[in-house]
Design a protein around this nucleic acid. Sequence first.
DNA 1: TCGGGAATAT
DNA 2: GATATTCCCG
Length: 383
Amino acid sequence: MYFFTEKMQRSKMGFPDYIQALEEERRKIQVFCKELPLSLELVAQAIEACKQQLSGTTTEYNLNGQSECSERTTSSEVPVLEEFIPIKKRASSSSPCCDEDDEDDEHHLQRVSNENNKNSDKRKSDWLRSVQLWNPDPPAEEDVTRKVSGMELKRSGSGGGAFQPFHKEERPAKATESLSKAPCSTRVAATSSSAGEVTPEKNLNDGQRKQRRCWSQDLHKRFLHALQQLGGADSATPKQIREQMNVDGLTNDEVKSHLQKYRLHTRRPSPLVHNSSNPQAAPFVLVGNIFVQSPEYAAVTTSTASREVSTVAAPAGIYAPVATHPTPVSQPSADSTKRSQFKKLKHFEHSNSDERAHHSEGALHSNSPTSSSSTHTSTSPGY
DNA sequence: TCGGGAATAT
DNA sequence: GATATTCCCG
């Protein structure tokens, strides 16, 4: 609708003419008042506004009488012309909202609740949020986690052992679900209250595959963290990881799958390493001994960090820019390749970024994302 | 029962 | 093609 204003501006129409045009428009729309109540209303408002401007009066908008069909949902206080923008905004913002997956229902909630954060780089905020999870006391999360139980617990028998101070009840719940899934795009907090979404497991009733679990950054972080504590991807088992992660609703299978992927990623590069061609690969590997842990992380992982180096960090390095630093300019070929990879593995990389920071010596990175963007390895997936 | 890996689905 | 789920085997 905002095209009206535009139109007017462009054509420099006089208000009288414009009003006339609007009236005309309204007549046309009137026919579809059922289908386009809003449009009708908007036009009506626009007319009203024009009239007011024309007369210079400050009369209040009296929209009620304008359209018989409209239900008047918008605040009449707002000048029509201004309203156009917001409306449009709203409409457009809804689409690009989430990064990936399609949990429409959730998205909606998320959208609403996260409206504020959305503006700026959502990713950033997400990231930050996820970071927060690692604070000494992540109350919110724990709450959520606590609330719902994990089926897998039953499966695994030992319900979490040492790592799970609390007991789990029945049913993996949505809350949990939201925690582990939502993060996909920042919706953690928002969803805690999410209504009666059906849990994936429940959906299974359909006899179909369960809903895909989205490994949010948070989740992945947890995963990595667990991995660290368990001595790396090679030595950690899915069950252990799951317990370590202490995420309700997370199943062994899911962890296993993720672990599989993780290993895949971390190992894939190794061959390259052998090729001397890849300067980046080899070096960093051990570089890691020197760790600079980010504050948040340090608190938790410091002790195990060193250990992890060999196992976890090293592989990551392959992709990671870590190694690269030594050779800032490095070969183009390598760069390009990695870059592409990086893109794909962005998710991992993302979560790992912090990891890198901890493990990698400062040299590696200035944790600044920009550095990574730089060319080479920086692109590496965080694995 | 569990873990690893491959096949399969999304 | 990447990622997650499911199946199979030891």
